[in-house]
Amino acid sequence: MTAPKIKKHLRLLIFSAVGMFGFGFALVPLYDVFCDITGLNGKDYSRESSVPMTTVDESRTVKVEFVTYLNKQLPWQFKPEINSIELHPGERYQVSFMAVNQSDQDTFGRAVPSISPGYGAQYLVKTECFCFQEQMLAANEEATMPLIFYIDPNIPADISTLTLAYTLFKNEPNADLAMNQKK
């Protein structure tokens, strides 16, 4: 029981505690990476993709469903032009989402995608999507928002349906700004 040894242990333990505090925060990006690989939470990590078109797999089809939600009953209309489509993997498809801002305020919205089953998320490749940016609709403005995507032919055989859900959130800081301007 010597003082230098105690000091050494003390330093080590404090260092570990600080390190674990950092680890708590490191879990945030780690979780994203983990989810991206495993599809743990069904979040869509695909960014704008320039992956060249692969061959179309004519032997099977995958049903893609489009679902939309308006967070907290945002006074917009937001609907896909079709509810679902049967596609061959590798086949490129464009679907439009219609959005109407029914309020008399300019509103910023952000469409947050979620895909089910989660591990199917990585096989839905978007080449162009309105969800890559924040959307602004002026009061009573209407817009058609395109999504171009294809299903990666490597998609596991047990996935026959992919559900793509968009939840449209009002982007709040900007909304506040819009309200203040109105006053």
Binding site: L70, K72, Q73, L74, P75, Q102, S103, Q105, K170, E172, A175, D176
Partner: peptide, 16 residues
């Protein structure tokens, strides 16, 4: 009432 108050529990009731 129609559009709620962002950042609070006050929901938009326009569609409800």
């Amino acid at each position: 009432v129609l559009q709620g108050v962002p950042g609070t529990a006050m929901a938009a009731f326009a569609k409800q």
